[in-house]
Lab assay of single mutants.
Amino acid sequence: RPMNAFMVWAKDERKRLAQQNPDLHNAVLSKMLGKAWKELNAAEKRPFVEEAERLRVQHLRDHPNYK
């Protein structure tokens, strides 16, 4: 299953946050990521939305029978 825009963004952002906050549990990091994503405007999200769409199209090509 291809990543959605949030997952594309969160992949690198989670690493950055975890390095800055090594003692935080994953659940806390996830909440921080969700809050930060909601605060991004459409222009800030656009590159990740476009990458998610590219991944979706590639997934359809690679797995035409996937449901």
Rank of each mutant, 00 (worst) to 15 (best):
P47E: 04
M7L: 09
K15W: 03
R46M: 10
W37Q: 02
L24S: 04
K11S: 07
K31Q: 12
N26E: 15
K31I: 06
H59A: 13
N41M: 05
V49R: 11
D12N: 11
R1K: 00
E39W: 03
L55M: 12
Q19V: 11
Y66A: 14
D12P: 05
A27H: 10
L24N: 01
V49I: 11
K11L: 06
L29S: 06
N65F: 04
W9H: 01
R14C: 00
L24V: 13
L60A: 11
F48M: 01
H63I: 05
D23W: 00
D23N: 08
E13R: 06
A52V: 02
R54N: 05
N26G: 13
E53G: 02
N41E: 10
H59I: 06
A18Q: 12
R61A: 12
Q20F: 02
P22S: 02
A18N: 15
P2C: 06
A42W: 10
L17P: 00
L60T: 08
A27M: 08
L60V: 13
Q20C: 07
W9S: 01
F6C: 00
F6E: 05
E44T: 04
K38Y: 06
M3P: 15
N41R: 07
P2D: 04
A5Y: 02
P64E: 13
Q58I: 09
E51S: 04
E50F: 02
M7A: 10
F48S: 01
G34R: 15
E53D: 08
V8S: 02
E50V: 08
K38S: 14
P22T: 02
L29V: 13
W37D: 03
A18G: 05
K11T: 06
N4A: 00
R61S: 13
W37C: 01
A36M: 15
N21M: 11
M32S: 05
K35I: 03
L60I: 08
A5R: 01
K67V: 12
K45V: 02
P22R: 03
E44K: 09
R61D: 11
A27Q: 09
A36E: 06
L29N: 02
F48D: 03
H25E: 15
Q58T: 11
K45A: 01
R54I: 05
E44V: 05
K45W: 00
R1G: 03
R1L: 03
V49N: 08
A43D: 10
A10Y: 02
L29E: 06
E53W: 03
K31P: 08
V28D: 10
K67W: 04
N65S: 14
V49P: 00
A43H: 10
L40M: 14
M32V: 08
S30H: 08
M7P: 00
H25R: 10
R46S: 09
L60Q: 13
K67M: 05
Q19E: 14
A10L: 02
E13C: 06
K45T: 03
K35T: 07
K67R: 14
R54L: 07
F48L: 02
M3D: 12
A36K: 15
E50A: 10
L33N: 00
L17K: 01
E39Y: 12
Q58L: 10
L17I: 10
R56N: 14
M7C: 12
N41K: 13
E13D: 09
R1M: 01
W9C: 01
H25N: 15
K11R: 11
P64A: 13
P47I: 10
R16V: 04
K15G: 05
D12K: 12
Q19Y: 07
N21W: 14
K11W: 02
L24Y: 04
R14K: 10
P47R: 08
F6V: 00
A27L: 09
H63C: 11
A42H: 05
A42F: 04
E44R: 05
M3L: 09
K35Y: 13
K15P: 10
N65Q: 09
R54A: 05
D62Y: 09
A27R: 14
N26W: 11
L55S: 07
Q58M: 13
F6L: 03
L29W: 01
Y66E: 15
M32I: 13
R14S: 06
P22G: 02
F6K: 02
A43P: 06
K67D: 15
L55E: 09
R46H: 02
A43T: 13
E13L: 03
L60W: 07
V28Y: 08
M3F: 05
W37K: 03
E53I: 09
V28C: 10
K31N: 09
A42T: 12
D62S: 12
P64G: 12
A42D: 12
E44W: 04
A5G: 07
N26K: 14
E13V: 00
M7F: 08
R56V: 05
E51N: 00
A10I: 04
P22V: 03
N41Q: 06
Q19G: 10
N21Y: 15
N65T: 13
E51G: 01
G34C: 15
N65G: 14
V49K: 06
R14N: 01
N41D: 14
G34D: 14
Q20L: 11
L55R: 09
A27W: 07
F6N: 04
H25V: 05
G34E: 14
D62R: 10
E51L: 08
E39C: 06
E51T: 08
V57F: 08
L33T: 02
A43E: 13
V57M: 12
E51D: 01
H25A: 12
R16W: 00
Q19W: 06
P64F: 07
P2K: 15
E13M: 09
R16K: 15
E39H: 04
A42K: 07
N21A: 04
A27V: 11
E13Q: 09
F48G: 03
K15A: 06
H25Y: 00
L24I: 15
W9N: 03
E51K: 11
E53Y: 03
E53M: 05
E44D: 12
W37Y: 04
M3I: 14
H59V: 10
A52P: 01
E13K: 05
R54F: 04
N4G: 08
R54D: 00
M7W: 04
E50P: 04
R14T: 05
R54C: 02
A36R: 12
L17D: 00
N26Y: 07
D23Q: 12
D12E: 12
S30E: 15
R14Y: 04
R54M: 02
A10S: 08
G34S: 15
L24W: 09
M3T: 11
V49L: 08
E44G: 05
M7S: 13
S30P: 06
A10E: 09
E51F: 06
L33D: 08
R16F: 12
A42G: 10
R56K: 08
D23F: 11
K35S: 08
V8G: 02
E53L: 04
P2N: 15
Q20P: 00
N26I: 06
N4M: 02
D62G: 13
N41F: 02
L24A: 11
R46G: 09
K45G: 01
K15R: 09
Q58A: 13
E39L: 13
N41G: 14
R1N: 13
N41P: 15
N26A: 14
W9M: 02
R61T: 13
R46N: 04
R1W: 04
E51P: 03
P2E: 15
A18S: 11
A18K: 13
L60Y: 12
E51H: 13
F6A: 02
P64S: 11
R1S: 08
E50L: 09
E13T: 04
G34K: 15
V28W: 01
L60G: 12
L55Y: 06
W37H: 15
Q19F: 03
N4D: 10
M7I: 09
E50M: 07
V49Y: 14
A10H: 00
R46P: 03
H59M: 12
F48Y: 05
Q20D: 03
E53F: 15
W37T: 04
L55F: 02
S30N: 14
A43V: 09
W9D: 06
L40P: 03
V57R: 12
K38D: 12
L24R: 06
N41W: 00
Q20R: 10
M32W: 04
P47A: 04
R46W: 03
K15M: 02
L40A: 02
M3G: 09
E44M: 05
K35W: 00
L55A: 07
D62Q: 13
V8R: 02
F48V: 03
H25W: 00
L33Q: 08
M7V: 07
V28N: 12
K31T: 06
L29T: 06
L33A: 05
M3Y: 05
L55P: 00
H25C: 15
F6R: 01
H59G: 13
A5F: 06
K11M: 13
R61Y: 08
V57W: 09
R56E: 09
S30K: 11
K45R: 12
Q19P: 00
K45M: 04
L40N: 08
L55K: 11
P2H: 08
R16S: 03
A5S: 07
L55N: 06
L29C: 04
K45S: 01
K31E: 14
K11V: 07
V57N: 09
L29K: 01
H59L: 08
V8I: 10
